[in-house]
């Protein structure tokens, strides 16, 4: 019964991933047979200043979008976890933004952030606030993408609500009797108990932030203005499918995998300390 899963994992993921890794050490353009060229692809990409700009963009994006997502999820989970009137409706509303298809989500935000006619800037102007050019201005474009990615907090919120409900209310009662305020019981009870789940969420969001950035970049900015919103998956896609530099694209993929792996490893070390793996 495991056969489909295991064979699928091998044929559709493991083999292709290994193939990508092997291609990183070859000159390959898909039209002529691959030629082994050692680390030449890596030296070529490392020499390009655009590559380093993109690595920096990717790190900024992942390291701001993922924590914002986790924090947003935490805030909403704490707000919406009680079993009160209307709570399921509010939760569903928040969750909906996370289930929208990527293409639709990107197109909606492309419209919302339209610098002149978009509702966001119309609302800001109405309120007398400054109206940034969002995706058009190289200084704000990456920030706008972070914002768009960070708003998708639905799944994280559900996970944290579930986790929050496992905290026995007797703990809070005891704290209240001891005279602890709301903030204090949050800090001493809720937060420690939720931390493993927050870290789990952070791992997922870090990996997802990098991997799922392709569609928004592709639809909303095409990597511009200049290289301001070019992130690694988009650069890799362009190198492979527009310029047919598949060897170099594979080398960049290897670097990206290393970056994501490093980030995830760092968080998972924290997780092990908190004993999250025992729950799985």
């Amino acid at each position: 019964m495991l056969t489909p899963f295991l064979s699928g994992a091998i044929v559709l993921i493991a083999l292709p991933a290994l193939m990508t890794f092997a291609l990183a050490f070859m000159r390959y353009d898909a039209l002529t047979p691959p030629v082994w060229n050692g680390v030449e692809n890596f030296t070529a990409i490392f020499q390009r200043d655009v590559f380093w700009i993109v690595v920096r963009n990717t790190l900024i994006f992942a390291l701001s979008a993922a924590p914002l997502q986790a924090l947003g999820a935490l805030g909403l989970a704490l707000l919406l976890h009680p079993q009160r009137r209307g709570a399921p409706i509010y939760r569903s509303t928040v969750y909906l933004s996370s289930v929208l298809p990527d293409v639709a989500y990107a197109l909606i935000w492309l419209w919302l952030l339209n610098p002149l006619y978009g509702p966001v800037n119309l609302a800001l102007a109405w309120a007398g606030l400054p109206t940034p050019a969002w995706l058009v201005d190289p200084r704000t474009a990456l920030g706008a993408l972070v914002l768009v990615a960070a708003v998708r907090v639905g799944e994280g919120m559900l996970l944290l609500i579930a986790a929050r409900r496992t905290v026995p209310s007797s703990l809070f009662d005891a704290a209240t009797i001891d005279g602890a305020g709301a903030w204090q019981s949050f800090r001493t009870i809720t937060l420690p108990l939720l931390t493993p789940w927050l870290l789990l969420l952070l791992i997922r969001d870090l990996a997802m932030a990098v991997h799922s950035s392709f569609t928004p970049v592709y639809i909303m900015t095409g990597g511009g203005p200049g290289y301001a919103t070019t992130l690694l998956p988009f650069l890799i896609y362009e190198a492979a499918f527009t310029h047919l530099r598949i060897g170099q694209a594979s080398a960049m993929m290897t670097v990206m995998f290393a970056i994501v792996g490093l980030l995830v490893w760092m968080v998972s070390v924290l997780m092990r300390r908190w004993g999250v793996f025992d729950a799985l």
């Binding site: 993921i13 990508t20 998956p233 694209a249 990206m256 995998f257 995830v264």
Partner: peptide, 16 residues
């Protein structure tokens, strides 16, 4: 498997 970037398999899958 969740951590393998989907972009890593675009091209090999395409060729396959």
């Amino acid at each position: 498997l969740m951590l393998v970037p989907s972009s890593a398999v675009w091209l090999p899958r395409y060729i396959l």
